[in-house]
């Protein structure tokens, strides 16, 4: 299985995402924002960072970059697409996911190991979890406040499209503690926290077992492999 990771000007976590793909026993493929070419990949990750310096709005300029035309087509065909942090912002800007992300409620950049509850374990990026699982992965953002109209929020909840919710602490003022959402089909998932930073013992969040031993993020990527194998 080949999973593409798109690099935009200002992407920071593209290499980490590629590494996470490798740790999940898939082949990472570096994709470039300026190309109209997905290199035939089976799934796509839009990584974190500060594309275009967050100019205009976070993810806004990247969401209209050349490769996004192909990403949107692929998403609409059912290809698994994961947007992490800035990638999540791009997916909302591209209207592949509902809602929007605004500056954190308290106005400050937040970095913490964040507990999340998996609300929907039927998506292409969460099927290796069980609904209700609590996981810990790093969160680091300045504009991570998820917002949508009350009607949209009700619809998302009703359709089971809240993929992840913050547990314990809501770090950025996201409405209804929403950390990540999915599209109707379940192939497109976006979230603010960073699964790609919790894939290798020694470099992940602390757990009760040992410092930096958290690898909950790896299952996002193994989920994609399971989804692709099931097709």
């Amino acid at each position: 299985m080949r999973i593409g990771v798109v690099t935009f000007p200002g992407s920071l976590d593209d290499r980490d995402a590629q590494r996470a793909v490798r740790f999940a026993d898939a082949e990472p493929v570096a994709l470039w924002h300026g190309d109209h070419d997905l290199a035939g990949v089976d799934a796509i990750v839009l990584p974190g960072g500060f594309s275009y310096g967050d100019y205009l709005r976070a993810g806004a300029i990247a969401s209209v970059s050349p490769i996004m035309a192909e990403v949107i087509d692929a998403a609409n065909r059912g290809t698994p697409v994961l947007g992490i942090c800035n990638g999540f912002q791009m997916l909302t800007e591209a209207h592949l996911l509902p809602g929007g992300l605004i500056r954190n409620e308290r106005g400050t950049f937040v970095r913490r190991d964040q507990t999340l509850r998996v609300e929907n374990a039927d998506t292409a990026w969460t099927n290796d979890f069980s609904a209700g699982d609590e996981i810990v992965i790093p969160l680091k953002n300045g504009e991570g406040g998820f917002i949508a109209s009350d009607d949209d929020l009700d619809r998302l909840e009703g359709e089971g499209r809240v993929a992840f919710r913050y547990v314990g602490v809501n770090p950025n003022g996201s409405l209804r503690d929403i950390a990540g959402v999915t599209n109707e089909r379940g192939n497109v998932v976006g979230l603010m926290p960073h699964p790609e930073h919790a894939i290798e013992p020694g470099f992940g969040p602390d757990t009760d077992a040992a410092m930096r031993s958290g690898v909950d993020g790896l299952r996002f990527f193994t989920s994609a492999l399971r989804a692709l194998q099931a097709v």
Binding site: A60, T92, G99, G100, I147
Partner: peptide, 8 residues
């Protein structure tokens, strides 16, 4: 469509 995001 581009200068603003109608969601926010």
């Amino acid at each position: 469509e581009i200068l603003s995001n109608s969601v926010i």
